[in-house]
Design a protein around this nucleic acid. Structure first.
Length: 273
DNA sequence: CTAGCTTCCTGATAGC
DNA sequence: TGCTATCAGGAAGCTA
């Protein structure tokens, strides 16, 4: 979510007010709804009024009330650049904006998806209607978390990825949040006590807000490099730091596999018991 | 409803 | 050097 929020903040001023002259789909696979032909026809000629984010979804709103919803998934990159910029490998969508710029979608692994909805069309396709609280929502309290998750048998780290509870936490930030909260990632929800729920509720917004702040960059930096890397992990405290020393206690960071994905944690700061 | 597994996809890296 | 195997992970789709 912090990465997606940064993308929204950088792109919104660059595309707002722009008329879409041409839309060119280079790979139909990324268009989830409707089909590529209708998608192209419907968006061409529209004027962008603003952009919004919900969980990890981005929406481009048009003057007409129609909208374009997208999800970058793992490796999706959305960038504004002059239209004569050499085309990178894995470019799947070109949106020609009035004035000579192009909004481009580049995605090595092609997991990202785009949807288009008419003004009065109800979106039940993207799954946005099932999203839970935003990580920075004031209603995200210890009481909320315990109520929603307290009886679940899965590991707390797994449940942090459930977008229908909290929208926006992926593998990077679940590691970071649990590290900050001092909770061992494999802790079963049923084994969490009030103190742990309290620390978790406090750290979710803190770590996410910190993630947004540390990812802040200029449009130039975004275009030059950092926005093109699908993971900017240099500032992270525990994710990707297996075998390195904990920044707090100098203990060696360990890595385990949990629910099919890697988890890094400090065995001292995040004790099992 | 919940839990657990597979699928999608390419590129970087490890191991032989 | 060159090959193959493994891993990276968001979320839908599937089974039980």
């Amino acid at each position: 979510m912090p990465e997606v929020e940064i993308i929204k903040r950088i792109l919104e001023p660059q595309i707002t007010g722009n008329l879409i002259e041409i839309l060119e789909i280079l790979n139909n696979q990324i268009i989830a709804y409707p089909d590529a032909e209708i998608f192209t026809k419907m968006i061409t000629g529209q004027t962008i009024i603003n952009m919004s984010r919900r969980g990890k979804f981005l929406t481009i709103h048009f003057k007409s009330g129609d909208k374009l919803v997208l999800h970058l998934r793992m490796t999706g990159q959305l960038l504004v650049m002059p239209k004569d910029t050499p085309m990178e490998k894995h470019t799947h969508l070109l949106i020609y904006l009035e004035g000579g710029n192009q909004l481009r979608y580049i995605d090595v692994r092609r997991f990202g998806r785009f949807w288009f909805f008419k003004k009065d069309e109800i979106d039940v396709l993207t799954g946005q209607d099932k999203l839970g609280l935003e990580p920075l929502d004031k209603n995200l309290t210890s009481h909320f978390l315990k109520g929603k998750l307290g009886k679940r048998k899965k590991a707390i780290k797994d449940m942090l990825h459930d977008q229908s509870i909290i929208a926006g936490i992926g593998n990077i930030y679940s590691d970071e949040i649990l590290y900050a909260a001092g909770i061992y990632p494999e802790t079963k929800c049923t084994a969490m006590d009030d103190e742990k729920w309290g620390r978790l509720a406090k750290q979710i917004p803190e770590v996410i807000a910190w993630g947004i702040n540390t990812n802040e960059m200029t449009p130039e930096e975004y275009l030059e490099g950092r926005g093109k890397e699908y993971r900017n992990i240099s500032h992270l405290r525990v994710y990707g730091r297996a075998a390195q020393l904990c920044l707090v206690c100098q203990t060696v960071i360990e890595k385990i596999s949990l629910g099919g994905r890697s988890s890094c944690y400090c065995p001292e700061c995040q004790r099992k018991k």
